[in-house]
Computed example of a mutant assay.
Amino acid sequence: MWGLLAVHLIIILLFLILGWAVRKKEGYWLISGFSSRTKEEQEELIRSGYPQKVGSLLIITALGMLILLPLMFTSFKFAMEVQFGFMIIFLMGGMIYLTKYEVPNKRKRSYIISITLFITIIGGMSALSYFSYQGYELVTKEESFEVTGMYGDEWKYEDITSIELMEKMPEVTVRINGVGLPALSKGHFKVTGYGSSLLFIQKGSSPYIFIELKDERVFINDKNPEQTRLWFEQVREQAELTQ
Score class of each variant (00 low, 15 high):
204 G>L: 10
223 K>T: 09
202 Q>S: 15
16 L>P: 05
52 Q>F: 11
161 T>F: 01
130 Y>Q: 06
37 R>K: 15
98 L>E: 09
114 S>Q: 03
115 I>V: 13
62 A>K: 04
225 P>L: 05
215 D>K: 14
184 L>G: 01
39 K>F: 09
144 S>A: 04
58 L>N: 09
16 L>M: 04
169 M>A: 09
171 E>N: 14
215 D>V: 05
47 R>C: 07
236 R>Y: 13
182 P>K: 10
162 S>F: 02
224 N>P: 07
113 I>D: 07
232 F>P: 01
96 I>N: 01
127 A>S: 11
45 L>C: 05
205 S>K: 15
161 T>K: 15
67 I>Q: 01
79 A>D: 12
192 T>E: 15
101 Y>C: 06
222 D>W: 10
120 T>Y: 07
93 G>Q: 10
188 H>R: 13
131 F>G: 01
3 G>K: 13
20 W>C: 04
2 W>E: 13
206 S>W: 07
81 E>Y: 11
42 Q>K: 15
58 L>V: 04
28 Y>I: 12
108 K>G: 00
210 F>I: 03
192 T>Y: 09
126 S>T: 11
53 K>P: 02
192 T>L: 14
116 T>H: 07
73 F>C: 03
40 E>C: 05
49 G>A: 03
231 W>M: 04
44 E>V: 05
207 P>N: 10
35 S>I: 01
241 L>T: 02
194 Y>V: 02
108 K>P: 00
96 I>V: 13
60 I>P: 04
17 I>H: 00
153 D>E: 15
50 Y>R: 01
14 L>P: 00
27 G>K: 10
172 V>G: 07
112 I>P: 06
69 L>N: 03
88 I>D: 03
232 F>E: 02
41 E>W: 05
167 E>A: 12
195 G>F: 11
215 D>F: 05
228 T>I: 00
109 R>G: 09
